[in-house]
Nucleic acid binder design. Structure first.
Lengths: 172, 172
DNA sequence: GCCCGCATCGTTATACTGTAACACACATCG
DNA sequence: CGATGTGTGTTACAGTATAACGATGCGGGC
């Protein structure tokens, strides 16, 4: 079993045995422990699959991968795990793609007390589809200010910028 | 032709409850004319339905309403119209709700030359579900700046802020 | 007039995304 | 032991969106 981490399924040229993933999983463990949440085997597997991919994965793509580890997996299997991971802030959903990515800050060890969602934004390249997560505080502040201006109390923001990444810009 | 739309009546042929809607439709006409696009009867009907609603409408809710005007309407009927209206910037999609709203700026008469998408943001209340569109330039600039900081060329941004509207905040 | 290409729309079928509902296993607690 | 709560397996279904093909109508070139 446990061979699951590295050579996923001949994805692309990049075959990362990913010590990053192992580290992120350990951080996730600590985070869940602090939050009193259980990072079960299933949830860890799903998180691992999301983290392994450098690009957003749809729920059913994830399901396909998960089936290699859990033959009986069905849609609710993966959706329940995803819901948990979203609640814990370990992954984010890219609404425009109906897909999920590991959270860039999940690996950071914050002082306890900061266990919730952090502001984040996605940059999605129209040409190559590459999706990058950033966490820009100026954007967060602008959003907060804009909301307050109309008496709205912001809790969480979905920000997804579509455009052209540096690589594709250079190519064009 | 007695396809009533519920409220307004009495006026001859035209069955438009809101003068806002009529105005917006006229503006849409002008806009499409300038863009060399055809605002056909179907598209105008769908746009009218979206504009009539003060809240986001899902494609199938829209389809149900459209069936009153066009018995044969099917999913592609409404999706094609929505695609056109999105391209023309006459409506926006709220990704988190899989729903569509009329564009707040579509009714404004801009100097020609400004026929494309404008920056916009949605405020979605968790309690009452009310969705409001704003167009905050500070947010737009912050997004642009954040993107440029990583060499990304922004073309269009989806911004949806979830939280509590003024009314629901006051109630709580 | 006639043909052709194009955009629009009708129609059927299907793919993709997400949930409801119920059953079972196990752990904790009185 | 029974009761409760969480996590998971399993079946079925709801909701969202698109593919594919046909029919119509309109404008341009012959």
């Amino acid at each position: 079993m446990a061979a699951g981490q590295g050579s996923a399924s001949g994805t692309d040229g990049q075959d990362t045995p990913a010590p990053d993933v192992a580290h992120a999983l350990a951080a996730a463990d600590a985070r869940c422990a602090r939050a009193g949440a259980q990072l079960t085997e299933l949830r860890r597997q799903v998180l691992g699959l999301v983290l392994e991919s450098d690009q957003p994965l749809g729920a059913y793509a994830l399901l396909d991968k998960l089936k290699a580890l859990r033959p009986g997996a069905a849609p609710p299997t993966v959706y329940r795990a995803l819901d948990f991971l979203l609640e814990q802030g370990l992954i984010h959903k890219v609404e425009r793609l109906n897909a999920f990515v590991g959270c860039v800050e999940a690996g950071h060890d914050h002082a306890h007390g900061h266990d919730h969602h952090h502001p984040h934004q996605f940059l999605i390249c129209r040409d190559c589809g590459t999706t990058v997560e950033i966490s820009d505080h100026a954007v967060a502040h602008a959003l907060e200010a804009a909301a307050q201006r109309v008496g709205f109390t912001a809790i969480q923001a979905t920000v997804e910028i579509e455009g052209r990444c540096a690589t594709c810009s250079a190519a064009a």
